[in-house]
């Protein structure tokens, strides 16, 4: 048994031959995987230490000052502890994250008013609340990638299902839903976000859901088209004549052949997701503060033009990410649909 059909195999090979897209794919994937581990890599508490012979995992568990000989029941302050000699005496094998920063912590003890320019402690400086820009960029990357990926999956599911059913059913179902979609598509999306955002809390999943509800339409057009086309292929008729059930025909014979537009559109919907979240955050309608986000950084940069490190680093990060995604998209499209189709 083969996992991929010849066609898919050929496409994979073609994609791999597209150096730029192929490498972009790896760079972006690796970066995203690292950002998923950001809790371990970029944090301001040790990953692990042992204290009086017992193991502690401060990143994952909550410990109070009392646990380490302090007086209060408040959360332990590891920055102070790590400079405290009593503590250091009893503690051993301390493992700290390579970037010892927290995107949410304000370094207000620093001299001057924030934002602070880049320094040894803060490689990309701090923002107007004296939070480390690098840490916020990394967490922001994780947020916006996760957001876009989730969004893309949601769009794919909605688009495939709705477009697919439209195309497969055809006739009146198709006609009526097409009218409904046209009405839906003409709703002003931004207002809806603002209204819903003011009624409910603008949580991560809420935003994904709202955006998804407004973004599947493009894909559904493609899917509808693809299904309409495939439905009239003779092998579908043959399958019907052979007595296969409708669901089996849908999933086994039509869907796998109709996924081309989905795959070619995915990288671009990823780009769309990143841009959408960034702009919403920029306008202040996105994720609730203080969630680290690129859009929010950008708007800070705009307000603090005398602190170019904020703008420059964010714009660079955004630019590189979007460019990588665009390269991937270009490669995928080329691999799936080379000029002069494979027959």
């Amino acid at each position: 048994m083969r996992i991929f059909s010849d066609l898919t195999q050929a496409r994979l090979v073609r994609f791999r031959k597209m150096r730029r897209a192929y490498y972009s794919f790896w760079v972006l994937s690796v970066a995203y995987i690292f950002s998923l581990l950001a809790t371990l890599l970029v944090n301001d508490r040790p990953i692990y230490f042992s204290y009086q012979g017992e193991s502690y995992f401060p990143i994952f568990c909550h410990y109070t000052e009392q646990d380490f000989g302090g007086q209060y029941l408040t959360e332990a302050n590891y920055n102070n502890l790590l400079q405290n000699e009593h503590f250091l005496d009893k503690a051993s094998s301390i493992i700290s994250p390579p970037i010892y920063q927290n995107p949410l912590r304000s370094h207000l003890y620093l001299e001057d008013a924030p934002p602070h320019a880049p320094s040894w402690d803060h490689w990309l400086g701090t923002d107007e609340s004296a939070r480390d820009v690098l840490a916020r960029l990394i967490y922001g990357f994780r947020n916006c990638m996760s957001f876009s990926l989730l969004l893309t999956i949601a769009i794919a599911i909605l688009g495939i299902l709705i477009g697919g059913i439209q195309g497969y059913a055809g006739g009146l179902t198709d006609l009526i839903s097409q009218r409904l979609i046209e009405i839906w598509a003409s709703l002003p999306f931004l207002y809806v976000v603002i209204i819903i955002g003011s009624i409910y809390e603008r949580g991560f999943f809420m935003l994904v859901a709202i955006l998804a509800l407004f973004s599947w339409i493009g894909l559904s057009y493609y899917m509808r088209a693809e299904f309409l086309k495939l439905k009239n292929m003779n092998y579908i008729r043959v399958a019907r004549a052979l007595g296969l059930s409708k669901t089996r025909i849908f999933f086994k014979h039509i869907l796998p052949n109709g996924l081309t537009p989905v795959v070619t559109l995915l990288p671009f919907s990823l780009i769309g997701g990143i841009s959408a979240l960034t702009s919403l955050d920029f306008l202040g309608f996105g994720l609730n503060p203080p969630t680290p986000s690129w859009g929010e950084l950008l708007s800070q940069g705009l307000k603090n033009l005398h602190a170019p490190w904020i703008t420059v680093s964010t714009v660079c990060a955004l630019f590189i990410t979007l460019m990588l995604a665009a390269f991937i998209g270009e490669g995928v499209r080329e691999a799936f649909d080379p000029k002069g189709d494979e027959k």
């Binding site: 092998y235 008729r237 043959v238 004549a241 014979h253």
Partner: peptide, 20 residues
């Protein structure tokens, strides 16, 4: 279904390209 069958003109679209 078992007794009545059909074969079509266009041999290129009569077989699902993704199945061996």
């Amino acid at each position: 279904r078992k007794d009545l069958q059909i074969i079509f003109q266009d041999p290129y679209t009569s077989l699902n390209p993704r199945l061996t």
